[in-house]
Design a protein around this nucleic acid. Sequence first.
DNA 1: TGTATAATGGAATGATCGTTCCAAGTTGTC
DNA 2: GACAACTTGGAACGATCATTCCATTATACA
Lengths: 207, 207
Amino acid sequence: MSGKPQYDEAAVIDAAVKVFWRHGYAATSINELTEETGLSRSSLYQRFRDKDGLFQAAMATYTDRVLRRMNAAEGRTGRERLVALLRGFVPADSASQRPPGCLLARSCAERIDLSPAGREATLSGVDRQREILAKLVRDAVANGELPTHTDAAALAWHFLGVLHAVLNLPQAGATANEVNRMIDVAMSAWPNLDSPARRTRSRRGSD
Amino acid sequence: MSGKPQYDEAAVIDAAVKVFWRHGYAATSINELTEETGLSRSSLYQRFRDKDGLFQAAMATYTDRVLRRMNAAEGRTGRERLVALLRGFVPADSASQRPPGCLLARSCAERIDLSPAGREATLSGVDRQREILAKLVRDAVANGELPTHTDAAALAWHFLGVLHAVLNLPQAGATANEVNRMIDVAMSAWPNLDSPARRTRSRRGSD
DNA sequence: TGTATAATGGAATGATCGTTCCAAGTTGTC
DNA sequence: GACAACTTGGAACGATCATTCCATTATACA
């Protein structure tokens, strides 16, 4: 069985994303990559140069997909868009297909052991995540939805932390319901100018 | 050079903590462990059975130390204690000795590749972290410092997320100043019953 | 039909992995 | 001085690591 089936590069990278996402860079072996991508070792090195090259391709794809999902959040107000954004990353309780956690956050943690290029891709990825949140906040300030003295940078960092918490805390035992309630709590950092009083309130969910 | 210097076990585990903390379990090699601990391979296997045994010992020590630091936070009110707790984990900007991030959060991320015992140690560690935060919240509710309808569990998850953000976001480029301002923002989830209005306000720091 | 192209399986590289084993050396106690 | 307890260095184990090479095979286009 050899030949020229012209493999589907997007599918290959997709599979690689899943492997790196699940195990991180260091704990991912070429063997597992060839098995999951279906690509032979030969073609893998031919196309991606080495493990790090495939990692960078996977990281680029993952980052684009995450950023697209963040940007796709809809809502009338900035607050509604932000809530939609966060809720969009709450993992479905029922045996999700997606690996747990976040490849960007994970690569951040192991960035010491990454190549300079991998490190750079990671850093720029989280930067772009944060920039999306910062822009959302800045727009809300411009709209009068948030007070002018709002510390937009601090809010962006905060919600970046919340986003990563949404992705990571399920691995620490949090249920989807608890994550959703946590989002409600975390949203109290976004002052609701219309009805200022309520804060630690809402409840939702299935367990 | 052989002999019987009766090695300092606490120092050995301390060194192992640092290595696992920096590289995670998978990316840590026995070679680096022997070099950093100063212990010979022979003694290492004699005393800790295998790499996983040493990891569990390191994890226990790390967890104890982190929980002790959390419990050591002082303050008049629950809110003050919580702020002190969080600020206590903001890394000093100037070339810190401590490895970045959090071994518990990191092990949570790679828990799929850990032994059952290692996984168990990790899970129980974050559970105890969360329990400290939950108790702090519950006490504040009992004191009347927080409203009775407070969702204590959700608040505990939230502040666990904030704690991990404090430890991890510096790896994503956050300065100590930004982390401190983020803490201020995150604390708006803790309603200040005496002066209810202010929220996205305070500013502090050095950059 | 032929030839360049693309992808393959499989063997082989040297390095490093975790782990085991053992002979040798040092210390404390009798 | 002898013996037990402890720790060591160093060699060796098979497994796996990332990577390279090559002969083979199927496709596409001429």
